[in-house]
Nucleic acid binder design. Structure first.
Lengths: 217, 217
DNA sequence: GTCTATATAGCGATAGAC
DNA sequence: GTCTATCGCTATATAGAC
């Protein structure tokens, strides 16, 4: 009961509302802006932030080099918006998954499975989220760090709910949360569409692996 | 018995000899070369390959910008030698750990524990190994990929030995090997000396987590 | 809002003296 | 083997025409 209430709280309230979505929604952006987001995401994911030039981004988006600066203040601004939106999407996908569950065991299975799936389905965004993070300015990095702490907190809350209910055999919730996130984050490293596994299989596999890590009964 | 022979084979022969160490040993390098290796490793680990300038490296090593090119053909050559030596060190640390074990269970615990510890103790090298990989030239990347495949193969061999002996409950040895390596690789992302855990604790924690992932009896 | 043209700076790497 | 000086190039970002 306590666990269930906690989970409901997390899924329905805390996570959804901690960072209100005051961002411009993608649908309100102009075609050029959307092309620039796509172009920058592909380039950053493929080559990394510093190996990507503004000319790369502009030409992929069908614009001149100067065209980028009509819509974005800098190359780093493009990275920041991609990174922030990616973190918000990842967090919301996980929170939604937890909301469907009626026990810590099911919440963890669905959250980790769904989060792993997100890394496969949103591969370019996931790579930016996990690998390009450090190239943000100090101010932007701190803003995104808050989102990362939210993601960490919801996983740890479910782990601790399972410890309290007796469903999980875990001594250190921080260490176990870190391990759970390690499994998921690394999907962005090895996954490639069509190789090894489908997003469906990844979701199932990682949900099961998560329950092994917490020694769920 | 079969499992034990396989493990001995892996530890004593295959891994150690697959790639003979024809590299110049660090001890035979000049002081300037060692300073350049250290300087480049620190800079690459802290900022990434493309955000590091040859002037950064040279000044950290106490040389002029031109001084780098007396000892290395290019900035990428420095990265390659660091990446290759790092992979060899990681592989050998793991193979040595497997050699001490008398069962797949103990081999896996010691290998994963030792490998995780290596990521903490050799943090700068580990970050280069895991994150700067993609900035190698095609030829160099393929050479390092062979080392990565060796590391993957030895972990998978131990997983499969445990499946054969009945000690592990695993359906897909590839997926489980990937998950085991995900745990370890991610240590290079979150570890920072003095924070959260000591290398000793990491070795113990990750050895135990590995056994959970394979559902060792 | 997009372009051409360019400012300003820094890059990796080399030449040649010592 | 290390230096000073610099080449040739590319980078991010801006100015101003349309």
């Amino acid at each position: 009961m306590v666990a269930k209430r906690l989970l409901t709280l997390l899924a329905a309230g805390m996570l959804i509302n901690v960072t209100p979505r005051t961002l411009p929604t993608p649908s309100s952006d102009s075609p050029a802006v959307m092309r620039l987001f796509d172009a920058a995401a592909d380039a950053f994911a493929a080559k990394g932030f510093h190996a990507t030039t503004t000319r790369d981004i502009a030409s992929r988006a069908g614009l001149s080099p100067a065209g980028v600066y009509v819509h974005f203040a800098s190359k780093e601004d493009l990275l920041f918006q991609l990174s922030r939106d990616g973190h918000v999407g990842a967090r919301d996908a996980m929170a939604a998954a937890a909301g469907d569950a009626d026990s810590p065991t099911e919440a963890l299975r669905q959250m980790i499975g769904r989060f792993a799936r997100w890394h496969a389905e949103e591969l370019t965004l996931a790579r930016i989220v996990q690998y390009e993070f450090r190239h943000l300015t100090d101010e932007h990095r701190h803003e995104v760090l808050d989102l990362r702490r939210e993601i960490d907190a919801v996983v740890r809350s479910v782990v601790e709910a399972g410890m309290t209910s007796g469903e999980f055999d875990v001594r250190d919730s921080h260490a176990t949360t870190l391990a759970l996130l390690s499994l998921v984050v690394d999907v962005a490293r090895w996954y490639h569409p069509g190789v090894r596994r489908t997003p469906d299989e990844i979701e199932e596999t990682y949900g099961a692996l998560a329950l092994r890590l917490v020694a769920a009964r």
